[in-house]
Design a protein around this nucleic acid. Structure first.
Lengths: 164, 164
DNA sequence: TATTGTTATACTCTATAACTATA
DNA sequence: TATAGTTATAGAGTATAACAATA
């Protein structure tokens, strides 16, 4: 998907050619300054880039998210994973299934409430998480390369206020 | 991490109760400070909220985006729409089809390149866009209510750097 | 030959409801 | 009765390839 590599384009005659890249011209649209739109576009680009990076580990971002939550000391239940990730229970089942099949996590019945399943990482799950975390860090670095470290901290702080 | 409106919570007995809402506990996960993750979560929430608002007009955000680009003076072709929205040509076809069926836009063959179709709004298309724009503004207001006006401007500026 | 739009198709993601086992 | 997880299924979103008309 060579969306990038826009080679220098001869400006041509402005009066006859309405061209430009097209991208620049359309910045005047109302939607182009719509924060929701910008968020959607940023997530699309970031998500596909991260998925591309994680493909090396046969993971997708959504699996990584689950793995990352599981690799804390918090011992989350499936319900809690779903709540945090804004995914419904059936989606969590599928994600945990695939992580369990490859031996990265296992389900433990919560002794305090035998309906709940706590998802815990295996040793290789921890390893996998470390590798994946390195890749997503790298991906974030690429996607946010137009931002200074200070701007990234700002962005993170602002998004945290919006996301939760 | 004092994220947002986290109401004072009685810490309870740490040794027996691992509970809390679940959301707060899991903030310690690596993924919770991952900008990509925060963007994804913000877009999920915002997108569904905006879709809910736009349902009143029988529109979705993706249709609104197209309509908004078309309602500029730039007379974009389908290809340009796809480029700007990061959607592939076949998706644009479907979106323009549905907008055309309801009489909001029509296709004009570009006289300079008869392969291209310029998508232009009808009068009722302009009306629809105005109504939809008001709703998305309202939606943005709701979703970003935890941010001050200054923070919103910051967020917009940062996202514009990332999104394009 | 290459590109724009179109159609067809398949695959992923998302949403919903019904079922089970516990509470 | 209500809740956590599971299963099944359908719908929306996304990606790809082949084709017609035009360049």
């Amino acid at each position: 998907m060579p969306t990038t590599a826009t080679p220098e384009k001869t400006p041509a005659d402005e009066s006859t050619a309405p061209s430009a890249t097209g991208i620049e011209r359309l910045q005047s649209a109302r939607v182009a300054s719509d924060i929701q739109f910008l968020i959607a576009r940023a997530r699309g680009r970031g998500n596909s880039h991260a998925n591309l990076m994680l493909a090396e580990l046969d993971l997708k971002v959504r699996h990584f998210s689950v793995l990352s939550l599981v690799c804390t000391e918090e011992r989350p239940t499936q319900r809690e994973l779903g709540e945090f990730l804004d995914l419904d229970p059936s989606q969590i089942v599928a994600l945990v299934d695939s992580l369990e099949e490859r031996g990265a996590v296992r389900r433990e019945t919560d002794p305090r409430d035998r309906r709940s399943k706590i998802v815990v990482p295996t040793e290789s799950g921890h390893d996998l998480h470390e590798q994946a975390a390195a890749l997503t860090r790298e991906s974030e670095e690429t996607v946010l390369q137009t931002l200074s470290p200070r701007e990234r901290r700002q962005l993170r702080a602002l998004l945290q206020k919006v996301a939760f």
